[in-house]
């Protein structure tokens, strides 16, 4: 008997996988036919950075969509969304090393010290690494679900850092970083409201007793 579409985890995974790779494939295709614009280095740097933020936001969207719309099937796919964020962030880091640092890896440290927006970006990337490393089933088992979940709440700080990093590099027109910021405020605000409400309920129960 066939499963319903909303239970078809394999289909969801394939869908996310292909759509997640598609921007990368299109960028590769554009690079091959020399259509990355007048300044390809700038475009690829920006595009990989924005894709990182898009996938971070998508991972943060999973919980509200589950709770509000009952889309529980999304939970299974969150790991893949997070790994895509890490994938594009690695690409973003590579563009920085190649185009901004000219592969002079020895200059990265001084650059992090010198430029605050680079420090904020690097900090967020560093926080992503343990999350990517602990994304396997074996690691979830090893850490235990509660501790694993706690560790992966670092995503909040990674996303805030990522948006801040974007805001800090913009010269004057902050429209896009502010859009990201607004979405992140809503998604994190949702969690704050939920946890406050839970705390209040706990107190209320305590009082009744």
């Amino acid at each position: 008997m066939a499963v319903t579409l909303s239970q078809d985890g394999r289909f969801h995974r394939q869908l996310i996988f292909i759509n997640g790779l598609l921007p990368m494939v299109l960028m590769g295709f554009d690079a091959w036919r020399g259509k990355l614009g007048v300044n390809p280095a700038e475009f690829v740097t920006r595009a990989t950075g924005v894709m990182t933020l898009v996938f971070l936001v998508l991972t943060l969207l999973v919980t509200p969509l589950r709770k509000l719309l009952g889309w529980n099937w999304l939970l299974k796919q969150r790991r893949l969304l997070g790994l895509f964020a890490f994938f594009y962030c690695c690409g973003h880091l590579l563009t920085y090393l190649a185009f901004d640092r000219d592969w002079q890896l020895g200059t990265v440290f001084e650059d992090v010290v010198k430029r605050r927006f680079i420090a904020v970006g690097m900090f967020s990337f560093a926080l992503m690494v343990p999350l990517a490393v602990t994304s396997t089933n074996a690691m979830i088992k090893k850490l235990g679900g509660a501790r694993w979940a706690q560790l992966h709440r670092l995503t909040y700080y990674i996303t805030i850092g990522g948006v801040l990093h974007y805001y800090m590099i913009v010269k004057s027109d902050a429209t896009y970083p502010l859009w990201f910021a607004a979405v992140v405020v809503v998604l994190l605000g949702y969690r704050v409201v939920v946890s406050l409400r839970k705390a209040r309920e706990r107190v209320a129960v305590g009082v009744e007793r």
């Binding site: 292909i18 598609l22 921007p23 299109l26 554009d30 259509k35 990355l36 007048v38 475009f43």
Partner: peptide, 14 residues
Amino acid sequence: SAVATGGMYRAFSP
């Protein structure tokens, strides 16, 4: 989904 993703990429590409 592919049209949406690709279209979004195109909209933001040079």
